[in-house]
């Protein structure tokens, strides 16, 4: 199981045979993780207060931390000369739900988009620092962003189903990966995984855009998990939805945790509290008229919402926004 080559894709999810798994990541031997968080030896930079070792967390928090999926080391993202978010160092753990919260403009979405190289699509964007994915730098010279996105999927703020049938929406990803067989099963499994199957099984040929907003977003989640990624990034997935649809998506996110590592950006603090295991709070620092986001505090969600270490976190979560 702990072979180097295909650990990030098929190591945990054996249903990915036949895809070109070799290219995207070439993780170190620790990546697939033996027991006891094999990555602990790699976390030497204890000087950063933001960088929490799993060992420390395990003592205090009740959340179960598994292996590290992402290690961010002093990550900064700039658009042109403007630094949108600076010097973020944090770890994201496997099969955890990690929430990124904070006020508008604090760079949480920008940071999220670094994790599957979506920022590459913005010509002026530049990423400094290291985003380590299972031991390999995502921005390393041999890494192909197209392959990265096959392993690290994304769900967007506004539901964006393709103007195609429900079936074709879900099948798009697998077809992109060259899968041709058992497409019906793949589509059904993904739709079941997104808790949408019962609602759409009789109208798979109708247009994805004919669904309600909440259904569209679940379709987008089905589309994302149809390629069996390891990680699903969610950029405020409920911000365009009504409260009932939001609750459904939140239930779904909790279910998805069994199979996927999830990083979710949200404006809604209650949502972070309801669904996430770990929460990172970001804030905005304004200097010389330029606003740069920074990571204030990263800890177990329960700790963030009960006894935050930083005053700014406390102000934000208690509604005294400062």
């Amino acid at each position: 199981m702990t072979t180097d080559k295909d650990a990030p894709i098929s190591g945990e999810m054996p249903r990915n045979e036949g895809t070109d798994a070799t290219a995207p990541a070439d993780p170190g031997p620790d990546a697939d993780g033996g027991p006891g968080t094999g990555g602990a030896a790699g976390t030497e930079n204890l000087d950063s207060p933001l960088h929490l070792r799993p060992a420390e967390l395990r003592g205090g928090g009740e959340v179960e931390h598994r292996d590290k999926v992402f290690e961010l080391r002093k990550v900064s993202v700039s658009y042109g000369s403007h630094r949108a978010v600076g010097d973020v160092s944090m770890d994201v753990f496997q099969r955890n739900i990690t929430a990124l919260i904070g006020p508008s403009g604090c760079g949480k979405s920008t940071l999220l988009r670094c994790l599957n190289r979506m920022n590459d699509l913005v010509p002026s964007a530049r990423v400094d620092g290291e985003v380590i994915y299972h031991g390999e730098n995502l921005y390393g010279p041999r890494v192909d962003p197209v392959q990265v996105r096959k392993v690290i999927g994304m769900v967007f703020q506004k539901p964006n189903p393709f103007p195609k049938s429900i079936y074709d929406n879900v099948a798009f990803g697998p077809r992109t990966m060259g899968i041709k067989q058992n497409m019906d099963d793949i589509v059904e499994e993904a739709l079941r995984g997104a808790a949408l199957w019962d609602e759409v099984k009789d109208k798979l040929t109708s247009n994805g855009l004919s669904l309600s907003g909440g259904q569209q977003q679940r379709l987008c989640i089905a589309r994302a998990i149809a390629v069996k990624p390891e990680v699903v990034l969610m950029d405020e997935p409920c911000s365009a939805l009504d409260p009932i649809a939001t609750l459904k998506i939140e239930d779904l996110i909790r279910q998805l945790k069994d199979e996927y590592t999830i990083v979710i950006v949200t404006h809604n603090m209650q949502q972070a509290a309801r669904v996430s295991d770990m929460t990172a709070f970001f804030s905005v620092r304004t200097s010389e008229g330029k606003r740069t986001g920074e990571l204030v505090e990263y800890d177990d969600t329960e700790k963030i919402f009960s006894t935050p270490a930083d005053r700014r976190t406390e102000d934000y979560i208690s509604g005294r926004f400062g």
Binding site: N116, M118, L121, V146, Q147, V148, R149, K150, V151, G153, M154, F156, K158, N160, P161, F162, P163, F172, G173, T176, M177, C220, R223, A224, V227
Partner: peptide
């Protein structure tokens, strides 16, 4: 064509 559709496809590993 809205950029969101392109992003959705890129996020699925489409070239």
């Amino acid at each position: 064509v809205p950029g969101g559709l392109r992003e959705g496809a890129y996020a699925l590993g489409a070239n």
